[in-house]
Amino acid sequence: MADNIVEIDNLSFGYKGRLLHKGINMSFPRGKVIAIMGGSGSGKTTLLRLIGGQLVPTQGEVRVEGQVVHKQDRHGLFQLRRKMGMLFQFGALFTDLSVYENVAFPIREHADLPESIIRDLVMMKLNAVGLRGARNLMPTELSGGMARRVALARAIALDPSIIMYDEPFTGLDPISMSVTCNLIRSLNDALGATSILVTHDVKEAFSIADYVYIVANGVVEAEGAPDELRQSTLPFVHQFVHGEVDGPVPFHYSAPDYRRDMLRGQDA
């Protein structure tokens, strides 16, 4: 157990009463790429926020390096967060700072280094994502894929031991997609970090992840190495992995009977 850098233990959470997660257990071994998959709105982003300590679980706990996240005081929480890098869904770059300054931001905030060293560090990180040449651009001048990569450079600026990716593939063209995909794997191995990859893109996730959790209806529906899941005969997993329209996850959002709804007229 000692080698799980993050552990989620019987976690329940809900916004305003309605439970979104109902007793989730996951563990994230050091050095691996772990994918968390699930449909939109299944609470994947929320799960990352729980790991980062931005939300407090209703029940259960999240442990990072053995420490319970929501029991930390502010200082302890900030100490933990320094070990994490998070890539937000749309990058969340600071729009008033240049690419260079965005990547330099966490370094400037947390380390009192001379400008020349900061410059070397920033160049190194930008080089790792292949955007050293874009350092003087402003975030508004970047394409979606480039912005995501700059955000990635920023997320790894302080060499975190945990990197979290929130849907890094959405809205990317096929080339950017495979670039990002390879980047996640290679960065993970180069930095010796642990990556938590939240996505619903089966193909990409399966190609780089060591282990996959599939969440639905607030619980972990299935887990295993990509190959195991591909072979799975569980109906839900089969539907999810192969992207079928109807199955255990119905096409229709739960609604009253169609005929009754129609007959009832406007007051519905």
Binding site: R49, G52, T95
Partner: peptide, 22 residues
């Protein structure tokens, strides 16, 4: 408001930087 909408404030918090202070 826009920084909040585009998750810049969340990102700052995740970098262990207090948006109130910064």
């Amino acid at each position: 408001g826009l920084m909040k909408t585009t998750e810049q404030l969340s990102a700052m918090e995740m970098m262990a930087v207090s948006p109130i202070a910064r």
